[in-house]
């Protein structure tokens, strides 16, 4: 239900004549439910901003929230609800922040019967409902992106690439490997090879409870990609069940070196470097 020009004209009139009362009443209503989590000054500031944007949109002739003229208002609402979502306010608290506008306007209308008609109030109410829904959507989207960010951070935390020896890096994989995580791990591993100039990488899957075809494919592709870059991968810690799965799935590990434990894998690498260097000249640690 859109506002008509008359209604929005009268609303502009009321809104602009009672800036202080509306802002203060709005702040009161919101403060009551936030129980001191935001300062009065901060609330007044938010109220003023909301009021200003609303007045501005109506003044330009916006008839509902989707109008071109309400762009600025949408931006203010989005900013408001993003702030609420980040600071951990609940969805109800955020929506109430918008719905409180009705309460604020009603107070003004009540005290001055001549100011508006029921129709004006219903029209305004519809607009505020739209604003509330919009705020709620922004709120949910912000929370979703927060969750996604955290998931990503968790992903980074859970997949360290460590330097094991001069020229040898290892990724100890712990926990369930889904396709997304496998991909992140593998990209990280390859980048570490470049950054540290390490020609050997050990992928230890002792802590991985299960491997499906996709994950196995990711590991295989990583080994091939590492070879293209001039580095060798060794896979260690393949548990009996996983070995069975790999065979049952018909996944070919081909000529990729596999070792029972991380220690075996490291010994294997050291022997490789030892043999290589030993052939040219006797070496210190070899």
């Amino acid at each position: 239900m859109a506002l008509n020009a008359d209604e929005s004209g009268r609303l502009v009139d009321v809104l602009s004549r009672h800036v202080d009362r509306i802002t203060r009443r709005w702040a009161e209503v919101v403060a009551a439910q936030l129980r001191g989590r935001l300062s009065q000054a901060e609330l007044i500031r938010q109220g003023q901003e909301l009021h200003r944007a609303l007045l501005d949109a109506l003044g330009k002739g916006a008839v509902d929230l989707t109008s071109e003229e309400a762009t600025e208002l949408r931006a203010v609402l989005a900013e408001f609800s993003r702030g609420q979502a980040r600071q951990g306010f609940s969805a109800t608290e955020t929506a109430t922040g918008v719905f409180a506008l009705k309460d604020a306007l009603l107070t003004v209308l009540d005290s001055d019967q001549s100011e508006g008609t029921l129709r004006d109030y219903v029209g305004f109410s519809a607009l505020v409902d739209q604003m509330g829904l919009f705020t709620f959507e922004t709120y949910v989207r912000t929370r979703e992106s927060l969750i996604a960010d955290q998931a990503e951070q968790l992903l980074e935390l859970s997949t360290p690439v460590v330097k094991l020896w001069e020229g040898v890096v290892a990724v100890p994989l712990v926990g369930t490997l889904d396709s997304a995580r496998a991909q992140v791990v593998m990209e990280r591993l390859l980048q570490t090879l470049v950054d540290t100039g390490s020609p050997y990488a050990i992928i230890d899957i002792t802590g991985v409870p299960a491997v499906d075809t996709q994950v196995a494919q990711h590991i295989l592709k990583t080994v091939v990609a590492a070879r293209l870059m001039g580095a060798d991968c060794i896979i260690s810690g393949i548990r009996p069940q996983i070995a069975q799965t790999i065979v049952a799935l018909g996944i070919e590990f081909g000529d990729i070196a596999t070792k029972a434990s991380l220690a075996d894998a490291l010994r294997h690498v050291l022997r490789l470097t030892g043999v290589e260097t030993g052939r040219r000249q006797s070496r210190r640690e070899a």
């Binding site: 293209l228 870059m229 001039g230």
Partner: peptide, 25 residues
């Protein structure tokens, strides 16, 4: 030498194995 990780991953996906080429970091 010096193949970037993203390039290597892409080559594997593309199916190009660069047979007969030696590589180094």
């Amino acid at each position: 030498v010096g193949m970037r990780p993203a390039v290597a991953i892409t080559l594997v996906e593309l199916g190009l194995s660069l047979n007969g080429i030696r590589t180094a970091l």
